[in-house]
Nucleic acid binder design. Structure first.
Lengths: 307, 307
DNA sequence: GGACGGCGCGAAAATATCTTTCAAGAGTGA
DNA sequence: TCACTCTTGAAAGATATTTTCGCGCCGTCC
């Protein structure tokens, strides 16, 4: 499966390069970039319009790097070459122009009044959603949906903040009649992963893409023939080695008060929701009755005089 | 120097090439164009996206003309050369693309392609966030923040989908050094609620506002003198009787495939995040060190060769 | 009607731009 | 410190774009 790894490094998603997803992609891939490439990526993300006006040589000079580095960066971002990155840049610039960028979101400060906190948080999360949706590879998503919809059994791994996302996914899948289980204990997860075989599916959720406690069970599941899916913010991370399908969540800038876990959770949940709806569509015949049944089962739990 | 004459007709306006005005310019200048140039202009105006993907040679072939003609047309339209026309074309395409976005307001249907599902879900959740932020009572929020920041102990109640939100809140609060516990077992929740007294806080999370399993522990906590907070989508529901502070989450319309739990979760999480940030601000002195400490403690859990 | 001049047009040369290759340098771990 | 890998830019190589140049069509004037 070295191929998978390679692919995830370069053009990754064989999908066509994204238009508006560029800023998100820069953030996602920045950590895996070399210093020079980061400079280029930064320039590109910071001033799309300006960079679109530059030739390779121009951008190389601006960033104090070489043409080769610029081309490499373009490749990493998923374009065939600089020419295409430039076109995407022009597109992005045009969008921003027409969209009239809503006043920048300053970081949340210690002394922000509570109303500002609400506004900034809501804006940031909206942004995260938009980025995630733009960057999400629908081909991979479709494949993952197919796998889960047809799986005999689904194991889900996640620890820390991601464990909640995993539980959310498990809850949803159970509701539509699939056999899913979210593991939070790494040891038990591995123990259970050994049981998996071809026809089963395993889903790992980790923002960093390098959480050992989550990689290990996925590796075991992978080795035992289960189809594996990784939901991660670092598609180039170690976990991708063992993932048949990779769903990329977007990464927002974080600040002291706003840990990365916050926006990664938003992003992960959107991906999970998309998976769920996709699966519900494919298994509509059985999912729809199962859903209404679960509602009815809960009805009496609510105080009847709800108005 | 016949060229000079031409130029004075077209690009001469010294003005920078138009972005969206391209179609108009084509129409304006069409009469002054030669037959071949008209073919090129037509192709360009008819399918900006498609043409943006072509090289000079490609566009020349497509229109059955030559490279020179394509360049001449680009010049006539006011661009320095084809390269720049192409960039403008990419921009135009991107604008048209994004302009088509608002069409996703429809419900998610069983036969929606996966890409539409992503777009619609993202849009819906963004909407939910905006609604929640707009409807959130900052006074109540501020009061709740004050209560939690100063509480000796915090108990959180939630079942079903809301239980995950409760756990998320508990995780966050623990990270900044507060004593918080999320209960999912209704019996244990009640048992523990009995221990609460003045100076303690209890948070109940329920979308319906009438989930007995959540109301009961909150009532007990309330009766024992703890300060109680309810996060609910139905501020007029039964749970409000026992809540000192009510934080309202927004309710989005739900559909067959999109259960209410989905958007209520988004809304609840935003409220929880706001609470968290608010509390972190108030207890900054202790929260900041606690946060960094928790990061460091986790660092070694991630595979070091992440770069 | 025929010849001349102008203009549109495309082939191909000239140039600019982009891509690839390769070897030197920086950083890293043993 | 040495060996090693990874990063980087210079320059060669490939493409794309622009310019040049001349052919051929067309209308006009003789």
């Amino acid at each position: 499966m070295t191929n998978d790894l390679k692919e995830s490094f370069s053009g990754s998603d064989g999908a066509p390069p994204a238009p508006a997803a560029l800023a998100a992609k820069v953030r996602t891939l920045a950590p895996s970039m070399t210093r020079s490439m980061q400079r280029v990526a930064e320039a590109v993300a910071g001033d799309p319009a300006g960079c679109a006006a530059l030739t390779v040589t121009g951008l190389a000079e601006l960033t104090g790097t070489s043409e080769a580095t610029v081309v490499r960066t373009a490749r990493l971002l998923g374009y065939p070459g600089y020419r295409d990155l430039r076109l995407a840049l022009a597109g992005l610039a045009a969008q921003q122009q027409s969209g009239r960028a809503p006043a920048v979101t300053a970081d949340i400060a210690v002394d922000d009044p509570i109303a500002d906190v609400v506004a900034k948080l809501a804006y940031d999360e909206q942004q995260t959603l938009a980025d995630t949706a733009a960057a999400l590879d629908t081909v991979q998503l479709g494949a993952a949906v197919g796998v889960l919809a047809g799986a005999r059994r689904i194991d889900i791994y996640g620890v820390g903040a991601s464990s909640l996302v995993g539980q959310d996914l498990a809850q949803k899948l159970l509701r539509i009649g699939l056999i899913a289980h979210a593991h939070t204990d790494p040891h038990l997860a591995v123990t259970n992963a050994v049981q998996l075989r071809s026809g089963d599916a395993a889903v790992a959720i980790t923002h960093s893409g390098s959480t050992g406690d989550v990689i290990e069970p996925l590796r075991v599941a992978f080795d035992h023939g289960a189809t594996t899916i990784a939901i991660t913010g670092r598609p180039d991370g170690p976990i991708s080695q063992y993932a048949d399908h990779i769903l990329t969540t977007s990464t927002a800038r974080e600040s002291e008060l706003r840990p990365a876990a916050m926006s990664s959770r938003t992003s992960q949940l959107l991906v999970v929701d998309c998976l769920f709806i996709g699966i519900a569509q494919r298994t509509y015949e059985t999912a729809a009755p199962a859903l209404s049944a679960s509602y009815e089962a809960l009805a009496h739990r609510h105080n009847p005089r709800t108005r």
